[in-house]
Every structure is written in structure tokens, then in C-alpha cells.
Amino acid sequence: MRPTGAAAPVGAGCLGLLGGWAIRPLSLQLGWTTPEVSWLQVLVLVFVAGVIAITAWVTWRELQVRGQWLEPHRAVNRLLMAKSCIVVGALLAGGYAGYAVSWLGIDAELADQRMARAASAALVGLVITGVAIWLERACRVRNDDDADLA
């Protein structure tokens, strides 16, 4: 199995950017109120990033530092979590960034607030992508051939 390439997160980020940007004009056209990004949403994303980071650190320590092995089902679960969070984190980052961009130049009462919260959530989406890449890399196991070369 190969590490996740750049195409998947970049594609997900672009798709999220387009979708996030379209939410505000589409909701206005349909007569709905525009969605609000709350600090609770940002904090939930921070929590998710923290869980992934702790999992990456523990996995890296077990496999790379101590040279221990994980049970196969745990290794697969962590790798699956890493690969999915890379794509989902990029999708979230793009979606929230697109939503923040859609508020640029709008002279509304809460435009700055919505833009700041969405930008914060986009930043945390990038953090989720980064720590998920770290987790994916931490799941690598050394080959016996690699140990002979060191």
C-alpha cells in the first residue's frame, strides 16, 4: 500500500472550496438564511485534530521508536483513519475557506464574524490533514532490508 498522494487532498480541497463558496449565494437565492459557523464547530474540529495527533504520536512511538508491532487489525484501523482524515480534512478546509471567501466584500452586520469563524475552521481543517498525514507516515513499518542498511 502506498502513501496518499497529493491528488486526493488537493482534489477534495478544491471540491470543498467550490461547495463552500456556493453555499451563501445558493441559500440566498432559495430564500434560506445563510448558515452560521459557530465556535463550537471549530472546537469540535480542534478535538478531532487532537485525537488524530495523539494517535499519530502513540503509533509513531510504538513502531518507530520502540520497534514494537501493532496487532494487524489496529494497524489497519489506524491506517484507514489516517487515509480518510487526509481527504476529509482537506474537504473541510476547502469548504470552510470557500464559505469565508464568499463573505469577502459583503457589507452585512455579521459578515466579519462569519468570515473569521469559517477561516478558523478552515485552518483547523488543514491541521487535521497534516496530523492525518503524520499518522499515515507513522503506520509505516521498516523492512528487514532497511534495518541492514542502517
Rank of each mutant, 00 (worst) to 15 (best):
M1C: 12
M1E: 04
R2C: 12
R2D: 07
G5A: 08
G5W: 01
A6V: 12
A7N: 12
A7Q: 07
P9T: 03
P9K: 06
P9W: 02
P9H: 01
G11L: 10
C14K: 10
C14R: 13
L17H: 08
G19F: 05
W21G: 11
I23C: 07
S27V: 10
L28H: 11
G31Y: 01
W32E: 06
T33M: 05
T34H: 10
P35T: 13
P35K: 10
E36S: 11
V37S: 02
W39S: 15
W39L: 15
L40G: 14
L40C: 10
V42Y: 01
V42L: 05
V42I: 06
V44E: 07
L45V: 07
L45P: 10
V46H: 09
V48F: 01
A49V: 05
V51M: 01
V51L: 09
I52D: 00
I54C: 10
T55Q: 11
V58N: 11
W60T: 08
R61M: 11
E62F: 09
E62I: 03
E62M: 14
E62L: 14
Q64A: 14
R66N: 15
Q68I: 04
L70G: 15
E71Q: 03
E71Y: 00
P72N: 04
P72W: 02
P72Y: 06
H73T: 07
A75V: 04
V76N: 09
V76R: 14
V76E: 02
N77L: 14
N77I: 07
R78K: 15
R78S: 03
L79G: 01
L80S: 14
L80K: 13
M81L: 14
M81V: 03
M81I: 08
A82R: 07
A82F: 00
A82N: 06
K83H: 13
S84I: 03
C85S: 12
I86P: 03
I86Y: 01
I86L: 03
V88E: 04
V88H: 06
G89N: 06
L92H: 08
L92Q: 04
L92M: 14
L92V: 05
A93T: 02
A97R: 09
A97L: 09
G98D: 01
A100H: 02
S102P: 07
S102Q: 02
S102V: 03
G105Q: 08
D107T: 10
A108W: 05
A108Y: 03
A111Y: 02
A111L: 09
D112W: 02
Q113H: 08
Q113S: 11
Q113Y: 06
R114V: 07
M115F: 02
M115P: 12
A116N: 05
R117D: 05
A118Y: 02
A119H: 11
L123A: 12
G125A: 06
G125R: 06
G125C: 13
V127H: 08
I128C: 07
V131Y: 04
A132W: 00
L135P: 00
E136P: 04
E136K: 05
R137A: 13
A138T: 05
C139L: 04
C139F: 00
R140Q: 09
V141T: 07
R142Y: 10
R142G: 12
R142A: 11
N143Y: 09
N143G: 10
D144A: 14
D146A: 15
A150H: 13
